[in-house]
């Protein structure tokens, strides 16, 4: 599995010039105290990993990878571990940058930053959890279309539901969420990612390349 992660990192490394420019722009804007870009590195980590799927598809890499020892298991495991590592790195990087920027601009609110980053990370994990099984099943190109249709569909459905039915949550629930969402969310996301991993594993086990 280590080899598969190394392969993905090497693929990412090949685009280091574009990434470096992006990171430099991000650092300049970030250090000026603009927090709009808090979400950028985390989402960038997702995009970067998705590009490795694209290279894999183009060169029919997975057909070759399943012939390697424990290939089927490792294909999935490597992608999930690489994703976790990359997003963790992106979060740490953003956190560090925001801390430095806050110290420079005398406007340091680490708690708020942590909550914002948690939100960003959760959004990325949510996307990954849906995307990866789909990509393993139908490939990146089709997977993207499916996912797009899926999210539009769900949004439209929820929009319709909330427009027609007035749902008001009890005050206790809102107060509970206000206090504990920050603690619950990471666990929910980890469980979601784990379920997604297990589904991907099953898909790849059954898949023919």
């Amino acid at each position: 599995m280590k080899g598969l992660i190394v392969k993905d990192l090497l693929l990412i490394k090949e685009n280091w010039k574009q990434l470096l420019i992006f990171v430099l722009i991000f650092i300049v804007i970030g250090l000026e105290g603009n927090q709009i870009l808090t979400f950028v590195p985390v989402f960038l980590s997702l995009m970067v990993l998705l590009s490795t799927f694209s290279y894999d598809d183009y060169n029919k890499w997975n057909s070759y990878a399943v012939t390697l020892p424990n290939g089927r298991k490792n294909i999935v495991r490597a992608k999930y571990i690489a994703s976790i590592c990359l997003s963790a790195f992106a979060i740490l990087f953003t956190y560090l940058l925001i801390t430095i920027s806050g110290m420079m601009n005398h406007h340091l609110n680490l708690e708020e930053t942590a909550v914002t980053l948690l939100g960003c990370w959760s959004a990325v994990v949510l996307l990954q959890s849906f995307m990866y099984p789909l990509i393993f099943k139908v490939g990146l190109e089709k997977g993207r279309i499916f996912l797009f249709v899926f999210f539009i569909g769900v949004s439209a459905l929820l929009g319709l539901v909330f427009q027609n039915i007035k749902i008001s949550l009890p005050v206790e629930v809102i107060s509970f969420l206000n206090h504990y969402l920050v603690i619950i969310l990471p666990f929910v996301m980890i469980i979601l990612l784990y379920i997604s991993y297990k589904i991907s594993e099953k898909i790849v086990q059954k898949k023919e390349f």
């Binding site: 280590k2 080899g3 190394v6 392969k7 183009y58 029919k60 057909s63 390697l68």
Partner: peptide
């Protein structure tokens, strides 16, 4: 026609294969 992504080099392949076998 199924192999490593073609933007990688022979050196990259060595680094990756080291972790596979």
């Amino acid at each position: 026609n199924m192999f490593f992504p073609e933007i990688l080099t022979a050196k990259d392949i060595e680094l990756a294969m080291r972790g596979m076998f």
